[in-house]
């Protein structure tokens, strides 16, 4: 589902955010990317949802070669990927329902389908009762659950989460992980970038450790 072949990403002449990284994630796999700040985790994630292009090497996601995508093809890739961020990136003037429905509106789904799917996913993340709330009036954990619901409502093939628990305490982090595991159980390939090593240890998942832009370990 995700393949990287000798991928290097340079900013400027000397700054190598990623250096000759190769890895492979199979369909339905759940893995973590860890490392200290500046190790290259976020760069890797940005390459995977085509916010960046590799300087060298090949990045394949859900059958798309990211390096060769033109501007008009990037949205097609992103419709198959859900992305979750540490800062949630929710639309503050929109309700929880509207935030989650937004993904399906972009895809031009019928209104009844949008309504049904949003209700279902909000139930799955335990926020059915907050569908009319505005994100700013919700806790960090709840906002992250909204972001996850938005990322999953389209049943993407891949879910990328960049430090999804960075602003949350341990209990909330585990709740978020439980949601991701549930999505993984439904068939979504999941890659989580985190600096918190306790999470992969607790869940017993594959861990890819980056250091100075290179893969230090993969187990």
């Amino acid at each position: 589902m995700i393949k990287l072949f000798h991928v290097t990403k340079r900013y400027g002449r000397d700054n190598r955010a990623l250096d000759d990284v190769s890895l492979r994630l199979h369909k339905g796999e759940f893995a973590f990317v860890t490392g200290h700040s500046g190790a290259g985790k976020s760069t890797l994630m940005r390459l995977l949802f085509a916010a960046e292009k590799p300087t060298e090497g090949e990045v394949l996601v859900a059958g798309h070669n990211v390096g060769r995508l033109d501007r008009t093809s990037i949205p097609i890739l992103r419709r198959n990927i859900g992305v979750v961020f540490q800062d949630f990136k929710l639309l503050q003037q929109r309700t929880v329902f509207e935030n989650v429905a937004f993904t399906l509106e972009v895809l031009g789904r019928p209104r009844h389908e949008i309504r049904d799917r949003v209700r279902t996913i909000l139930r799955q993340v335990g926020l059915a009762h907050k569908s009319k709330s505005l994100p700013l009036r919700m806790s960090g954990g709840e906002q992250q659950r909204v972001a996850i619901a938005r990322a999953l409502v389209n049943e993407p093939m891949v879910l990328l989460a960049d430090e999804p628990t960075g602003n949350l305490d341990t209990q909330l982090s585990l709740e978020i992980m439980a949601l991701l595991e549930a999505a993984n159980a439904r068939g979504t390939t999941i890659l989580v970038a985190t600096h918190d090593l306790s999470l992969p240890e607790t869940l017993g998942k594959r861990v890819i450790t980056l250091e100075h832009g290179r893969i230090k370990s993969d187990k």
């Binding site: 949205p75 419709r79 937004f102 972009v106």
Partner: peptide
């Protein structure tokens, strides 16, 4: 700006 960033993340094309 934030809204447009989210639009792009969820796969909205330029025309949308």
């Amino acid at each position: 700006k934030d809204e447009i960033e989210v639009m792009r993340l969820v796969g909205a094309n330029g025309r949308f």
